[in-house]
Simulated scan of single mutants.
Amino acid sequence: MSSASREPGSDVDLWPAIKELPKFSISVSLDAKAIHATQLPAIAKIAEDIPTQSVTSSTKSDWIDIDIRPGDSLTRIFSRLKLDPAVAITIAAHRKGQVLASLKTGPRLKILLADREFAELKYEKSLNSLLHVRTTDNGLQFNTVSRSFEVIEQKVTGVITSSLFESGLKAGLSESLLHKLLSIFQWQIDFNTDIRSGDRFAVIYEKKFLEGKKIGTGPVLAATFILSGNPHHAIRHTDSAGIARYFSPEGISMEGKFLRSPVRNSRITSGYSYGDSIPY
């Protein structure tokens, strides 16, 4: 188990404010279907050790990464590598290798050579599915390998000094995550007038990795804004029907009747404001 990690700009620790949120039961009605939850998911686990890809030294230098070009075929790629194109034809003609008859562009293919002859290939059919073909004494062997994503919970805390957008980026949040935060709190916070210098925020969200490489960002699991000393908390809950919603620690839905700060479709920008408020 890994310990809590920190992103740039996490000089103020708001984690206790989130960790100590009370557990509660939810019973709300959505589209005439009852949603029940006995307890919010635990959000106390924070990971800091981001995995790195492990490659054995015996094969690392032998694998050739192929950047598939538009119009490429396996036969053409074999020819560029001065390999027997008949092997490529045999592979693509096999019922398990038919996906190689129409290659997708990009860095999806790796080929292993042994004594300058074809030994193995790995083709990324999708993010979580890999086709592995290798030569054996009994001919070609085909295997489809399912790959599992590794999900890590990431914590980011920060202090708003200029604008929410600039301070969020400095703390390590992406633009898409900042838009998610605005969307979650748009019923409780007016980001045009409620933000002040010195206000703080804390966010826990998911990072997705595949073979040690980050491939995407998951949902916000919990978030806190401390505005002029007043806390605003949100916790994500997914019901038995797979519908995810955000709730306050008291079990009240974050979705109100009136929007205090409608989320814009454009990039969050800074602008002028009145008084001491800070534009987001």
Results as ranks from 00 to 15, higher is better:
S2L: 09
G9A: 08
G9K: 04
S10D: 11
L14A: 03
S25C: 10
V28R: 06
A32V: 09
L40F: 07
P41H: 02
P41Y: 01
I43K: 02
E48T: 15
Q53C: 12
V55H: 14
T56P: 11
S58P: 05
D67Q: 12
L81S: 08
D84I: 04
A92K: 07
G97W: 02
P107K: 14
D115E: 15
A119I: 05
A119L: 11
A119C: 09
Y123I: 01
H132S: 10
G139S: 13
S146K: 12
S148P: 06
F149N: 06
V151D: 09
V159K: 10
S167K: 03
G168L: 01
S176K: 14
I189P: 01
F191Y: 09
D194W: 02
E206L: 11
K208L: 15
K214E: 15
K214S: 15
G216T: 03
G218P: 00
I226D: 10
P231E: 03
H233S: 03
I235R: 01
R236W: 01
H237D: 05
D239Q: 04
S253K: 03
K257I: 11
L259R: 07
R260W: 06
R264E: 14
I268H: 07
S273C: 13
G275R: 04
D276S: 09
D276Y: 12
